[in-house]
Amino acid sequence: MRVYGLKTCDTCRKALKSLEGSDFIDVRAQGVPDAVLAQALKRFGEALLNTRSTTWRGLDAEQRKKEPLELLQEHPTLMKRPLVEKDGALYLGWTAETQAALGVG
């Protein structure tokens, strides 16, 4: 299982605590593989973009018009977190639904 997020994100830390033994990928330092981003975008659509983030607010209107995949490749911190990959399935956020699907919580 892989958890994509930020090491400074409280929600990501909570997820990691519950998902012992998972691999953590800090998207700021390591990025997200293009194949994973494409799969996540197909599954979650624009919900994958965190439009309430500081990074989003720092973008100008022209940058915000870019395709979501391009934006996430350029600014991986725009991704809602955490993104959990388990057995080829993806889960977004640390909601009760995600926790139930992963058998934790």
Rank of each mutant, 00 (worst) to 15 (best):
M1D: 07
R2K: 15
R2H: 13
V3D: 01
Y4N: 01
Y4C: 03
Y4W: 10
G5F: 00
G5D: 05
L6V: 01
K7A: 01
T8C: 08
T8M: 07
T8N: 11
T8R: 11
C9Q: 05
C9N: 04
C9V: 07
D10C: 09
D10V: 11
D10I: 09
D10L: 09
D10K: 11
C12M: 03
R13Q: 15
R13D: 03
A15C: 08
A15F: 00
L16S: 04
L16R: 07
L16I: 05
L16K: 02
K17P: 00
S18I: 00
L19P: 04
L19E: 04
E20Q: 12
E20Y: 02
G21Q: 03
S22F: 09
S22Q: 06
F24G: 02
F24N: 02
D26H: 01
D26V: 01
V27S: 04
R28Y: 08
R28I: 06
R28C: 01
R28P: 00
A29C: 07
G31Q: 12
V32L: 14
V32N: 10
V32Q: 12
D34L: 13
A35S: 14
V36Y: 03
V36W: 05
L37E: 13
L37Y: 14
A38W: 02
Q39L: 15
A40S: 15
A40K: 13
A40I: 13
A40H: 12
F44N: 06
F44T: 07
F44R: 05
G45Q: 02
E46W: 02
E46T: 14
L48S: 05
L48Q: 01
L49R: 03
L49P: 04
N50L: 05
T51C: 12
T51A: 09
R52Q: 15
T54W: 03
T55K: 02
T55N: 00
T55D: 05
W56A: 07
R57E: 05
D60L: 11
D60I: 11
A61R: 09
A61D: 14
A61F: 01
E62W: 03
E62M: 00
Q63T: 13
K66R: 15
E67P: 08
E67G: 14
L69D: 08
E70R: 09
L71G: 00
L71P: 01
L72C: 10
L72F: 10
L72N: 05
Q73S: 12
H75V: 01
H75G: 03
P76W: 10
L78T: 01
M79V: 10
K80S: 04
K80T: 03
P82H: 06
V84R: 06
E85P: 05
K86Q: 15
D87Q: 13
D87L: 07
D87S: 14
L90F: 14
L90C: 12
Y91S: 06
Y91K: 03
Y91P: 04
L92N: 04
G93Q: 06
G93I: 07
G93F: 10
W94C: 02
T95N: 12
T95I: 14
T95H: 12
T95D: 09
T98G: 08
Q99T: 07
Q99D: 06
A100L: 15
A101N: 12
G103R: 09
V104W: 09
